[in-house]
């Protein structure tokens, strides 16, 4: 047993491949048997992953889901920023440049609309919960943009750690919701073609949410959504501590 655990711990990434493979297999089986294929296997796999992350977070008190369990740290490497970005780039293989060009302008507009709408919603909710100072309102609003924009903005304008934590939480809620809900609403918002996928990526913006949500909806849409989403966090970090903060300060 000791020897087995030693092998598992020493080969983290290989362990991760095995575990994810089993999870995906189980998910596709569940999809077929329980839902007759109505809920896509990859959507179930992502939900199982999120469930495991919640369980591991409760168990370890850490912030990185199952990656905080030392035996499973390989999952952190497999699902970390490096391989995630590498995987996203690889999905662009086979994409037609003309498809991207078609939605260039509206894609860019969607990024700005997405940042602005999410920020306003977050800021209004913050005011509704009794926050009255511009720094806290801005930081929580920025958190609703993405969980990276929130703390970057908050740190830049000097928010309290309690508000920073809230803004990260708001961003994670958004990422998780986009992952889970996208395949369910895709039909109603016309998310079945590259052009709409680009608008979707720009509006939602959260890279992990868009990446997961589109993967569970139709993997062929991933590169289009990811293309615009990848600019979103940058735009958010640019506007959050500057323009948006000044606007909030002028208003309260």
């Amino acid at each position: 047993m000791q020897t087995l655990l030693g092998v598992v711990a020493a080969n983290g990434l290989i362990t991760a491949f095995t575990l994810v493979g089993l999870t995906v297999w189980l998910s596709y089986w569940l999809s077929r048997v329980l839902t007759h294929g109505r809920i896509h296997g990859s959507a179930i796999a992502i939900i199982l992953g999120l469930g495991a992350a919640w369980w591991a977070g409760k168990l370890t008190g850490g912030t990185r889901g199952v990656a905080d369990i030392s035996l499973l740290s390989g999952l952190g490497l497999m699902g970390g920023g490096m391989l995630r970005d590498f995987g996203i780039v690889s999905t662009a293989f086979g994409v037609q440049l003309s498809e991207l060009r078609k939605s260039g302008v509206v894609g860019v507009i969607s990024i700005f609309v997405g940042v602005l709408v999410s920020f306003i919603v977050g800021a209004v909710v913050a005011i509704g919960f009794g926050y009255r100072d511009a720094i806290s309102i801005t930081t929580i609003g920025a958190g609703a943009v993405t969980y990276i924009v929130g703390p970057v903005t908050g740190a830049a304008i000097g928010a309290s750690s309690e508000v920073l934590a809230l803004s990260v939480a708001a961003g994670v809620v958004k990422a998780v919701m986009v992952m889970v809900a996208t395949p369910m609403v895709a039909r109603y918002i016309g998310l079945n073609n590259p052009q709409t996928a680009m608008v979707f990526g720009g509006l939602m913006g959260t890279t992990s949410g868009v990446a997961g949500g589109l993967a569970a909806t139709d993997p062929r849409l991933v590169p289009y959504g990811a293309m615009t989403a990848t600019f979103y966090t940058g735009v958010g970090c640019l506007l959050g501590p500057s323009l948006l903060y000044f606007a909030v300060r002028a208003l309260v």
Binding site: A16, F17, V20, G21, T23, V24, S42, A45, I46, I47, L48, G49, L50, G51, A52, A53, W54, A56, G57, K58, T63, R64, G65, V66, A67, L75, G76, M78, G79, G80, L83, R84, G87, I88, S90, T91, A165, V168, A169, V172, V173, A175, V176, M179, S208, A211, G212, A215, P219, V222
Partner: peptide
Amino acid sequence: MYIPIIVAMAAGQNVVAAV
């Protein structure tokens, strides 16, 4: 390998913080 990577990413999210 993209979807398996996304599954691993989901398992590494700070879901407790969200809840």
